[in-house]
Design a protein around this nucleic acid. Structure first.
Lengths: 217, 217
DNA sequence: GTCAAGTGGAGGAGATTACTCCGAAATACC
DNA sequence: GGTATTTCGGAGTAATCTCCTCCACTTGAC
């Protein structure tokens, strides 16, 4: 009986979802819903009309993130025949989509018996597992790394650094550090690729940090 | 004219400082001071008597962390002649001391003209820079990594993972990931050392996560 | 044993937060 | 273009949380 949403309502829904993802990343799962509405550029009533309560909103954010992550993994595998290269591509895409930072933070604020969510979560895990196993069988990924390791590392890379680091710099650094992580810090790794992103010193980082807004939580 | 603190007062001060560090790490710089006192197992009045306001407390936490970090770097250099090994040792010690996670988060909530703090911060940066330069000159650390990279990576490793991950597991994983980071993910690195810490799958991680308390921010 | 230093926790002022209500505006359909 | 209806925005309220002070009691130092 549910009619399709009106065009403006749909657009607003999308914006609220995106704003919620960012707010939860920056401010934690306790981010105020007024703040989410403010970031979305919409009234608070609009948010509540679309998502009756906080849990419903979180659920939608997580579902969206899980689906995006799965899609990114699939296309990475399709586009890159070499499995380690596919993994590398996925990691960078996941950072841009700001997907990994939000999933674990919200996931345990949601009832475990949610079938749809469990399915999406399992699917994502399976895809990543497959990606990793393949790369290990090809001999390009170290065999003692597990799915959880890779997942957790992507989370670590995706989360904004503490302090007032501007968003753009933060993401650029995340990419740079992803390269570093993937290549290895030690020169024992022979095929190191040149690092992308800005090469900063501490003072430069602090100076650059002055421009960003400060996360509250 | 300030007399030395009474023995019990000194112990309480120490406990408050430690509790504040943990609370700021778990809950962010906005952590409630009542919560800090609760974690320290002391009354709220005791906290306020020792640290007149939030800023003073933050300042003390940061100073403590900066000093600890500097001491760890010095002893790491002393104990390990090979510079890359010294770096590795320092990284692990920093994770245990939970030092890196708290510094950047609080540092920009404190006035920049604090001489003592600026000095300590500069000293720490210089020590790390030296450690890194030495390792690069020895040819064991990749030359395109900067101080900021290493600093930021240690921060990324030190922060607790989002979600209800128990503290012990969280720290064990941090060590494991530090090894991974230092060795490099790719098998192109020939001298990979075996990973310490638990090797978990996703489901194991989620299950284990059920036991911990949930960070609020 | 004395006394200054230290302690805990109740409590009030102020700020935040979640959520609702309703007049105004925008959209879809004809 | 006209109109019925969906959607919007923001003021308003009650409940909660946070900071911080005050003061009667306890504890360590000499």
């Amino acid at each position: 009986m549910t009619r399709p949403l009106r065009a403006d309502a749909l657009e607003n829904r999308r914006r609220i979802l995106a704003a919620a993802r960012e707010a939860f990343i920056d401010l934690g799962p306790g981010a105020s819903l007024d703040e989410v509405a403010r970031r979305a550029g919409t009234g608070i009533a609009t948010l509540y009309r679309r998502f009756p309560d906080r849990q419903e909103l979180m659920r939608a954010v997580v579902m969206d993130a899980l689906e995006t992550a799965a899609a990114e993994m699939r296309s990475a595998v399709e586009e890159e025949p070499e499995p380690f290269a596919a993994l590398r591509r996925y990691v960078h895409r996941a950072i841009d989509a700001r997907v990994a930072a939000v999933i674990p933070a919200l996931l345990d604020a949601i009832p475990e018996d949610d079938a749809e969510l469990t399915a999406a979560s399992g699917e994502g895990g399976r895809l990543l597992e497959q990606l990793i196993t393949t790369a290990q069988e090809a001999g390009t990924l170290r065999p003692d790394a597990t799915v959880a390791d890779v997942g957790a590392l992507v989370v670590r890379l995706s989360r904004p650094l503490p302090g007032a680091v501007p968003r753009d710099l933060d993401i650029a650094l995340a990419h740079r550090h992803a390269d570093l992580l993937l290549d290895g810090l030690s020169t024992a790794a022979e095929l190191t690729t040149p690092l992308g992103g800005p090469a900063l010193t501490f003072p430069q980082l602090r100076t650059a940090a002055g421009g960003g807004q400060r996360p509250r939580s």
